[in-house]
């Protein structure tokens, strides 16, 4: 595993962001794209699940199948976003590579396009990864790469290795021909040192376990694991000594009641008991968090922690998360 600090490691071109549902995968993909843009890169942020999560995150109208600027940064960096759609990608692909005018229409008329994008399971993934590949190597007329980096808001951890590896399946089926060639090229990019798959998790048992399993699967498939992004980490208003005292049960109800009176709160034994129960529950959650943090220590990949945003993620919070990713050296 090349460390991010490894000076011989080339700058990443393709960041794949995966994670268990509900962990904030789209949010962190957006924050990462923003961080790269602030560093002066031209970034394409892609989503593939038709959920329009990026539009919601950046507070813009739903994205068509078209690259739209969603954020600009001082210094020339920018984030463009694209919601990749399987059917549009296939037609575009046929047009671009094979100039299929009449034949393309015939394919459509015979339901091949429909078959390929909605019915034949798996072909959609081929098209989605194919579009990412195309964007990653697209050049403008003067021969420069159009995008410095691609950030892919990818399918969830449970499906990620299969999704990225789908072109191996294709290569296994198609022994010759242009699709085979394309599948091989896509796999070469996916497995290269310029690609990293980042896994978003929260400090909960199932999510951490899924992340560990995901890493094993990715490595088995020869796909490069990047960072583990631990999201929604809850801080604590309790300092160490308060945690110890409450944890040991050495804070007596009566002294709490007295302190509450001092705080100007009309305390009852009931209120005291409730507050202490909430404290106990809070400590329990902290313990669970740290146990899961321990479980992640065994992972041979750098880990970054990002705080829980209590008021919900807006553009301001997104910038804070981008900054946190930069400070902790994600890229």
């Amino acid at each position: 595993m090349p460390s991010p600090a490894d000076p011989t490691r080339p700058r990443l071109r393709l960041h794949v962001v995966t994670g268990k549902g509900g962990t904030g995968k789209t949010t962190l993909a957006g924050a990462l794209a923003l961080a790269l843009a602030w560093d002066g890169e031209r970034v394409l942020l892609c989503e593939v699940e038709g959920r329009q999560g990026i539009a919601q995150l950046f507070d813009v109208a739903p994205l068509p199948y078209e690259e739209r600027t969603v954020a600009v940064a001082p210094g020339g960096g920018e984030v463009r976003a694209l919601a990749i759609d399987g059917e549009a990608a296939l037609l575009e692909y046929l047009q671009m590579y094979y100039r299929l005018g009449r034949a393309g229409r015939a394919l459509d008329r015979f339901g091949v396009i429909d078959f390929a994008t909605t019915i034949a399971p798996g072909l959609r993934d081929v098209l989605l990864t194919g579009k990412v590949y195309e964007a990653a190597r697209r050049r403008n007329p003067s021969g420069d790469l159009v995008y410095d980096a691609i950030v892919l808001d990818a399918p969830p951890t449970g499906r990620i290795a299969r999704f990225l590896n789908v072109n191996t399946e294709v290569a296994g089926l198609a022994k010759v021909g242009p699709i085979r060639h394309q599948a091989d090229s896509i796999m070469a990019l996916m497995r290269s040192r310029r690609t990293a798959v980042h896994l978003v998790t929260v400090l909960e048992e199932m999510s951490v376990q899924e992340t560990l399993d995901g890493i094993t699967e990715l490595r088995r498939a020869g796909l490069p694991v990047g960072h583990v992004l631990v999201n929604l980490v809850r801080g604590s208003p309790l300092d160490d000594s308060a945690r110890t005292a409450l944890g040991a049960g050495s804070v007596a109800a009566l002294t709490v009641e007295a302190a509450l009176h001092k705080a100007g709160i009309d305390a009852t034994p009931q209120l005291v008991a409730q507050l202490m129960a909430e404290g106990e529950d809070h400590l329990g959650r902290l313990q669970l968090q740290s146990a899961q943090r321990q479980a992640l220590l065994g992972v041979d990949a750098p880990v970054i922690e990002l705080p829980f945003v209590a008021h919900g993620v807006d553009l301001g919070a997104l910038h804070d998360l981008a900054e946190a990713l930069t400070e902790q050296g994600l890229w």
Partner: peptide, 14 residues
């Protein structure tokens, strides 16, 4: 004050 600071913590948790 250790007790008071712990209680302040509880109030903030709440």
């Amino acid at each position: 004050d250790s007790t008071q600071s712990a209680v302040a913590g509880l109030l903030r948790v709440h």
